[in-house]
């Protein structure tokens, strides 16, 4: 049984076709990222598969049930935009409501609040929450029912670095525990950190890509003589100046060659940091976006 099965799914607004006979099957746990420029229909896609918006045609099944059956939300959650929250209620009120409707004991409220790190402001009015606090609450609401399938619409929006790290940690933990996660995001660097399975939404169609096949590794070197190091590498490798050092695109075996080269020319290496990327390159290829000059 597929966890998520989307077949022939179409949706248009007036004459504008947003989703065009989309097919998608996700069989097991893991994290999938839904990527596309603004206005391509990422939120519409998530709204249609969760039946918040009716599809023009096609079928969606989650965990063996049609998306039209509201009981799927006992095992499925959807983290939506923070505008859905009631400003005049507290975080606790929201979580208790989700517990009540799911017939889950209210002890889960405290549990999930602690898990996402919002216990300190649980009893404050949502109207006084920052953007990041709202994202925490939305995440907590979507975790109340221990979902097997979790949809997240721009979950990393408005998060400070600490919250981003926590969010990534939670998503990885959930995936490890067997949850299937489909998240939409603009933040390609964040996507690189949480998943290698990307769904690009272009012209109403989904393009599935495995990032591990398109990975690019950069090494950041902090060296004693940046100018000389640049001269040595710029002819052979793609190299860029960064504050106090160089950013060089290398494969693993090329790293040792570069280290040997620096030693040979008496350039001291103070620090090396690895950065793996790929979604941005793929994004540029798929959406035909040129490099900024």
């Amino acid at each position: 049984m597929a966890i998520l099965s989307v077949s022939n799914l179409s949706k248009s607004y007036k004459k504008h076709l947003v989703l065009d006979e989309i097919e998608l099957t996700i069989d097991g746990p893991g994290i999938w990222a839904l990527v596309g420029p603004n206005g391509t229909g990422k939120t519409t896609f998530l709204n249609v598969i969760t039946n918040i918006l009716p599809a023009d045609s096609g079928t969606v099944e989650m965990l063996g049930k049609s998306n039209k059956d509201p009981s799927i939300f006992k095992q499925v959650s959807f983290l939506q935009d923070n505008s859905i929250l009631f400003d005049y209620l507290t975080g606790y009120d929201h979580l208790k409501y989700v517990c009540d409707v799911n017939q889950i004991p209210k002890t889960r409220v405290q549990e999930v609040a602690e898990y996402v790190g919002m216990e300190n402001y649980l009893h404050k009015l949502v109207g006084n929450y920052s953007l990041g606090m709202k994202q925490h609450l939305l995440l907590a609401m979507s975790l109340v029912n221990h979902p097997k399938l979790l949809f997240l619409d721009e979950p990393l929006n408005g998060l400070d670095p600490t919250s981003s790290i926590l969010m990534r940690k939670i998503l990885r933990e959930l995936a490890d525990q067997g949850t299937t996660i489909l998240l939409s995001s603009h933040n390609l660097a964040e996507i690189d950190r949480v998943t290698k399975q990307i769904l690009f939404l272009k012209d109403g169609k989904l393009i599935e890509k495995d990032l591990s096949e398109h990975e690019i590794t950069f090494y950041h070197f902090i060296v004693s003589n940046q100018t000389k190091a640049m001269e040595l590498l710029s002819d052979k490798y793609e190299t860029d100046n960064i504050p106090n050092g160089l950013k060089v695109q290398l494969s693993n075996h090329q790293l040792n060659t570069v280290i040997d080269l620096f030693k040979e020319h008496q350039i001291d290496i103070f620090d090396i940091e690895k950065e793996v990327t790929g979604s941005e390159k793929l994004y540029q290829e798929i959406f035909e976006v040129g490099e900024e000059s």
């Binding site: 039946n51 918040i52 509201p70 939300f73 505008s83 859905i84």
Partner: peptide, 15 residues
């Protein structure tokens, strides 16, 4: 108008 109805639409409650 404020979209908060969407909370109810993603809970196990029929319309």
């Amino acid at each position: 108008e404020e979209h908060s109805i969407q909370i109810a639409f993603t809970l196990p409650v029929s319309k």
